[in-house]
Design a protein around this nucleic acid. Structure first.
Length: 433
RNA sequence: GGAGAGAUGGCCGAGUGGACGAAGGCGCCUGACUCGAAAUCAGGUGUACCCUUUAGGGUACCGUGGGUUCGAAUCCCACUCUCUCCGCCA
């Protein structure tokens, strides 16, 4: 959420920022409502003030007895009606204003590159080299079943499209990746957290998933609970509503959780394989920092995420999202894209964002400066390190060999019981029946 | 699921209809004392919003939402959460 006072103070600047996002928002309605809100506050507070003073007079008059008290009581009854009316229109206007403000996306930092969409995201760095194959590299949706570790058909049988069953080396590999990433994060100073996978509406609103993107989330029928689309939601909301001591900052958390996404509107894309699932595992990093620290923190967080890929010997590049591609709540985002030879493309494997004070304002998360000054909003950041499914895909596709086997990256072997290679299973790949 | 108890400021804790933003204590800040510190003494110490802005004034907030009343931390209703006991259960 944006600071309504800043929005109103400089409507044109906000309009320009929204135009940079290629978004379309109704700011005039906001300034309109804000004006009505102010008028209502002035009139109801004045009425309430008089009501308070006269009420004290009544108490005295009542003690002394006499007709005066009765007259005063009647007068006050009218005034009371006035106050109630004013208060109810005020809360209505404030609710409308709140809804509008909650639907405004964050303002990108000024130095975020301008652009209309993904194709205009500038590449900022690249690590390693595209592996070269003297054979035709396979896609993971062929490799996985041949190795007997990915079963798309049974996934569909159990739950439907976009669900997959991992077996044997696949299940083990996913577990290994999660443990490896978590250990790496903890080693970098993140505290490991196990969170609820279901969260309430306030939590989803705090990080920005609601109210605008309710269709993207899975909701528990009959209850106001949502399956988390990412551990960003529980981790960031850990401190919702708190007044934090400056000396306690920064908070740095990591968690490995399942994530659930309805993928509404994504029907045509990535229908094959593990890339786009309704349920996937992800290791998430979340940081809560002082405002002046967030830009540097983002670079470090990004590097922490990249380190995972380097340790796994996976070629990747980093792009910065241009204004037109930036997520709703983000002020700046770097995507890490891993090379997938089976698809001859770089695909997003992590998204690291600085949300400035946008989420903090939504969830009223502030800190008290050590010098005793007024509370200030914190800045929040998060990034995946990494999405386990997509990492598994990258390992299969980048480390595959001509015979269909896959080399387990060195860093993962301790987590795989020393296993060095995943071998194809005879007759596997089409035996589902 | 059944029975009961509770939710008050940074923390503990008093408060059963008007002078309560809220006693008292702790913590914290400032001053005095001290070479310095501790102890002691004195004063101060919430958040948000609105008006006016050197300064100030006002309103709201006692788990959440409703209700009664001229007036609610205080009375009524619903909900949420916490604790205790019983049942059930991974």
């Amino acid at each position: 959420m944006l600071d309504s006072r800043k929005v109103l103070a400089d409507l044109d600047a906000i309009k320009a920022a929204m135009a940079r996002r290629r978004g379309d928002v109704d700011l005039d309605a906001i300034s309109d409502l804000a004006g009505r809100r102010r008028d209502l506050i002035v009139s109801t507070e004045d009425a309430r003030h008089r009501q308070k003073r006269m009420g004290q007079g009544l108490a005295k008059a009542a003690r002394e007895g006499g007709d005066y008290a009765a007259t005063l009581r009647a007068e006050l009854k009218d005034l009371s009606e006035q106050v109630k009316e004013g208060a109810s229109s005020l809360s209505q206007v404030e609710a409308e204003l709140e809804t509008l403000l909650l639907s405004l996306p964050n303002i990108p930092y000024e130095d975020v590159p301008d652009g209309a969409g993904p194709e205009e995201n500038p590449e900022v760095s690249r690590w390693g080299e595209k592996p070269s194959f003297d054979f035709e590299p396979k896609a993971h949706w062929d490799l996985g079943p041949e190795l007997g570790i990915l079963d798309f058909e049974r996934g569909a049988r159990l739950a439907g499209a976009r669900f997959t069953v991992l077996m044997d080396g696949g299940a083990r590999l996913e577990r290994a990746l999660g443990a490896f990433m978590l250990d790496l994060a903890v080693g970098s100073g993140y505290r490991e957290v196990a969170t609820p996978l279901l969260v309430n509406r306030d939590s989803m609103t705090g990080t920005g998933q609601l109210p605008k993107f309710e269709d993207d989330a899975f909701k528990v029928e009959g209850q106001d609970l949502f399956l988390i689309p990412t551990a960003e939601v529980p981790l960031t909301n850990l401190h919702r509503g708190e007044l934090i001591e400056e000396t306690d900052l920064p908070f740095r958390y990591c968690a490995s959780t399942a994530c659930f996404r309805a993928e509404a509107g994504g029907y045509g894309t990535d229908t094959r394989g593990l890339i786009r699932q309704h349920q996937f595992q992800k290791v998430e990093l979340v940081e809560i920092v002082r405002p002046e620290d967030s830009s540097e923190a983002l670079l470090k967080l990004l590097d922490n995420a990249c380190e995972v890929l380097r340790r796994l010997d996976l070629h990747y590049r980093v792009v910065e999202l241009c204004t037109g591609d930036l997520g709703f709540a983000a002020a700046r985002t770097f995507d890490i894209e891993v090379w997938l030879p089976g698809q001859n493309a770089y695909r997003e494997i992590s998204s690291c964002s600085d949300f400035s004070d946008y989420q903090a304002r939504r969830m009223k998360m502030r800190y008290r400066p050590a010098n005793g000054a007024k509370p200030r909003l914190v800045h929040t950041l998060n990034g995946s390190a990494l999405a386990l499914g997509r990492t598994l895909v990258a390992v299969l596709e980048q480390h595959q060999r001509p015979d269909g086997s896959v080399v387990v990256p060195e860093a993962l072997r301790p987590y795989m019981g020393g296993r060095q290679v995943l071998e194809p299973v005879a007759g596997a790949g089409r035996e589902t029946s």
